[in-house]
Design a binder for these strands. Sequence first.
DNA 1: TAATGGTAGGGGAGGAAAAGTTGACCCTAA
DNA 2: TATTGTTAGGGTCAACTATTCCTCCCCTAC
Length: 885
Amino acid sequence: MFDRGEVHYKDFFNDPTSTFESNIAYTLRFMIDAKVVGMNWIEAPAGKYKLIDIKKKKSRCQIELSIRWDDMISHAPDGQWSRVAPLRILSFDIECAGRKGIFPEAQVDPVIQIANMVTRQGESKPFIRNVFTLNTCANIVGSQVLSYTNEADMLQGWREFVQKVDPDVIIGYNISNFDFPYLLDRAKALKASTFPYLGRLEGVKSVTKDTHFSSKAFGQRDSKETALDGRLQIDILQYMQREHKLRSYTLNSVCAQFLGEQKEDVHHSVITDLQNGTAESRRRLAVYCLKDAYLPQRLMDKLMCFINYIEMARVTGVPFNYLLSRGQSIKVLSQLFRKANDDGYVIPALKGEGSDEHYEGATVIEPKKGYYDVPIATLDFSSLYPSIMMAHNLCYTTLIEKHTIDRLSLVKDVDYIQTPNNDFFVTSKRRKGLLPTILEDLIAARKRAKNDLKNETDPFKRAVLDGRQLALKISANSVYGFTGATIGKLPCLPISTSTTAYGRQMIEKTKREVEAEYSRANGHEHDAEVIYGDTDSVMVKFGPTDLPAVMQMGSQAAEFVTGKFIKPIKLEFEKVYFPYLLINKKRYAGLYWTRPEKYDKMDTKGIETVRRDNCRLVSTVISTCLHKLLVDRDVKGAEDYTKQVIADLLQNKVDMSQLVITKALAKADYAAKQAHVELAERMRKRDAGSAPALGDRVAYVIIKGAKDAAAYERSEDPIYVLENNIPIDTKYYLENQLSNPLMRIFEPILGDKASSLLSGDHTRTIQIATPTIGGLMKFAVKTTTCLGCKTPLRANNSVKGDKSAICNNCRPRTGELYQKQVTTTSELQVRFSRLWTQCQRCQGSLHQDVLCTSKDCPIFYMRKKAQKDVEDSTAILERFDYELW
DNA sequence: TAATGGTAGGGGAGGAAAAGTTGACCCTAA
DNA sequence: TATTGTTAGGGTCAACTATTCCTCCCCTAC
């Protein structure tokens, strides 16, 4: 009955009985009843509480008191109560000494360093920076070094540090799935039994639980959870995965993206060597570790993760930790419960089974594809679904059945309405629905927040307000999805299907009205044409070629059409695309103008530049071409650029980081064979610990292989390719990655001429050594050829067979060829040392070896390749040693 | 190793290659 | 075991299917 934090009154009854409000967790139930929302202020009024005697305290809190639940005052987070407390935030990172080629395992591999940064919320710099190290470590300016000779003592020392600092929030990168579980497992392996008490409750052990999260929107993910009573946790990795769509989620890549800087990425196998070195090499490691502890804090500050989540918790009313651990629907449910209880409703405990059937969604108007060199106005309904629900009073509480209408002899369009989906809802005259009220409140609150934002000058308060308006917008938009979630706590398909049905009608009507009003028949110079539209927007070609005229017509049309709909439905003129390249449904690009003087930006939707499942080369090429075509209006330039890129690609001049493709490992069991899935499996066999897990993005390149081998047989880990010098299948990148996207953007502009882009002289390439992996080639002996004439070198035509440099025929040219090789080699060496220095700068020292192996850094690939080139070139040079001069 | 009828062309079998079709999958638009 | 916002739609790849093309071989006419 009281299992898992929910009360199931159902157990009181023998028969299946429907109950109300019984399927809700204690925490949330309490918060709703006490009108407490996540992260708000609570006042214990003088005289209403009792301080707990210091000897009887159950927690490590400074103040412990008891109070009746209805004596405490919960302050709504407005005005002075919207401030954020100066909470202490601990950001930390650990390093482990793994074995070569194996990901660290807590049973075997020690924790060697733990770096910590402690910051007060609202301050810009940490007030504590320290690092716990196993074995000695040379001094680090600005940071305290705490060295231990025994690992268990170090862990114990860290635990005491945590209890002393007593952080309210603990953050880090991947701490949930790695650092916390590893520390706890390691302590167990070392039998450090006093270690796992990291929370604020006395005597409550911190344990790691395995959790699984799966939703259609976020995908599936296995993760771990270590509850620390009284301390919030934000794993910045999890935050990033939820809130930002990125190609890669490594700390390095995320920092490059948001902080504009790279960090050293030291491979876990190198860490052990540094640990086993000197106090100086351990200092090196500690500096690295400290940086990794600081970066999550900086990311959090820069992206305002904490503030935005605080506001989200306040707006939706859920506990803070739900935001990272639970889905979207709990937030809507929390708001619904609160509003329902205020208005005297109780909510039935339903259990949606979910169904395989999809209901009909929005209309996408068949696009009139092509390149438009005239301004195209865009009209959109603002918050379409919320405004439909408000306009037509769609709610759980207003839905009625036919027989009720008959029984009460209700009058259509006065007492009730019939939706295009043939559901019935009473009008707001009869009863105002809960959902419309919630939506109105959310939208009004957002308007207030935006207004306050305009008048606020304090940057900190501005951040809070901005976070709030964002949270309110997201909340309003998720109400519709909640009603349509058949596997949810309160599905109601009549609401969602009626909403989409109204939406479909509205976009059709908008198209009709605009085309009818702006026509020659109606005295206009041109017939307006709706060339595309999706869900809540129409793209209109009004006809005129000058921007201000089209903008004028756009805003007029928006006002005109708005007048034809019920309040608060509003069609807005937002922008003009000029020029506009319409490729397909959900795929277009154009210059985005909101004022006639200057375009705001280049906007691309759905095409390769905004997708994460192709390689960077494709997205940069397409984006550069679009820029040349739309902004510079330089078709020739775009063609030349494309040809140059193709030529570079085929000659292996394109850097490998540009060719890495990433795809999410979205599920555990795949029916079809796919490149990223097969590679993940192969990597798991090489080293299970470091292989991609469920939900991770797998990075791969396509390598050369047998002629008819499928792509999934030729996918490989970029690092592995680099280390083993495996040739890349550039032809695949041309034919399977570049060609179609290029054709799609060039064809509407060039017509049939477009195909010449892919077949000109620039595609002719020098044949580069064929692959050596697999097949018969594995057994073939690679022959060396003469540097002068490429003749295979054998004992009978040269001085020293395949160890020589040239054949006897080319002997007269020895000097010239040698000189050429010397030049090449030294050029390559210069290039390599430039890259090397660049990496040294990045790691912050010009006197130390470069350790970085960041898969996300283009310099890393270039450096590795340059290194290989130097080695190869030197090897060739050495062949001259055998030559007779 | 020795002995042998040649050429042209139709037609079918068998297999390879090219061309559609379908479904799984990923990701994005709204 | 409890939990998981929606549908529409483009595009890629693998796997399958039906079609076309090519080659080989047999046979016959001459």
